[in-house]
Design a protein around this nucleic acid. Structure first.
Length: 194
DNA sequence: GGGGAGATTATCT
DNA sequence: GATAATCTCCCCG
């Protein structure tokens, strides 16, 4: 079930850090398959870890399109990662989900039945949800996507982002610290301020 | 359960 | 030619 375009615009036409926190607890589905987001990261045009840092290129073009645009890219030559665009040049990387819908399908795609590892990581969850370049630069408000906002916004932890070598001190990784479905645990940093 | 190597390719220097 | 918003497997203990 696709989301209302005006809802998607309201939800994503905002500061990327605010949206990255807001997405924790939301449900993300592709063709009805997916689960509850428990881990995200924010990327802005202002910092060198972001693909958009040096301005638009053919790859990062979607990051400069409308809020709620899906940005998919290949990483390390073999995995896909999925992002949701916010203000121009900024996007939220979706890093981990609790698998809830279409679990059998996801197990088939991943070739593994350990629920904890099904969607615990940006490359893992794209494989589980069947996301690839065909989904790039398409609106989250359209099929096959579905985004249901978090009903209750609980305490969200913050910490350093993972797998980057630049701007490593920005605490722009967000998530539920007690979730068993994270790509990595949250340790040092406490709850993020609002 | 933790560390290290290898996989594999688009993108940018 | 090096790097990259990663994952899995294998080895060690």
């Amino acid at each position: 079930m696709a989301a209302d375009p005006s809802f998607i615009k309201r939800y994503f036409d905002d500061d990327v850090v605010a949206v990255a926190k807001r997405l924790i607890g939301a449900q993300f589905l592709v063709d009805g398959i997916g689960g509850t987001i428990v881990e995200t990261e924010a990327y802005t045009q202002d910092e060198p870890a972001s693909h958009s840092f040096r301005g638009p290129t053919p790859r990062n073009r979607p990051m400069f399109n409308a809020p709620g645009t899906v940005y998919v890219y290949r990483i390390y030559g073999m995995h896909w990662c999925v992002n949701f665009v916010c203000h121009p040049g900024s996007a939220v990387l979706i890093r981990a989900l609790v698998p809830t819908e279409g679990i059998e399908e996801m197990i088939g795609r991943r070739g593994l039945s350990d629920l904890r590892k099904l969607c615990a990581g940006p490359g893992r969850l794209t494989q589980a949800l069947g996301i690839d370049l065909s989904h790039n630069d398409r609106p989250l408000s359209d099929t096959p996507f579905s985004l249901i906002p978090a009903s209750v916004e609980g305490p969200v932890f913050a910490g350093p982002r993972i797998g980057i070598t630049k701007a490593v001190d920005l605490p722009w990784r967000f998530g539920l610290p007690d979730s068993r479905y994270l790509s990595k645990p949250f340790t040092k940093n406490g709850p993020s301020e609002d």
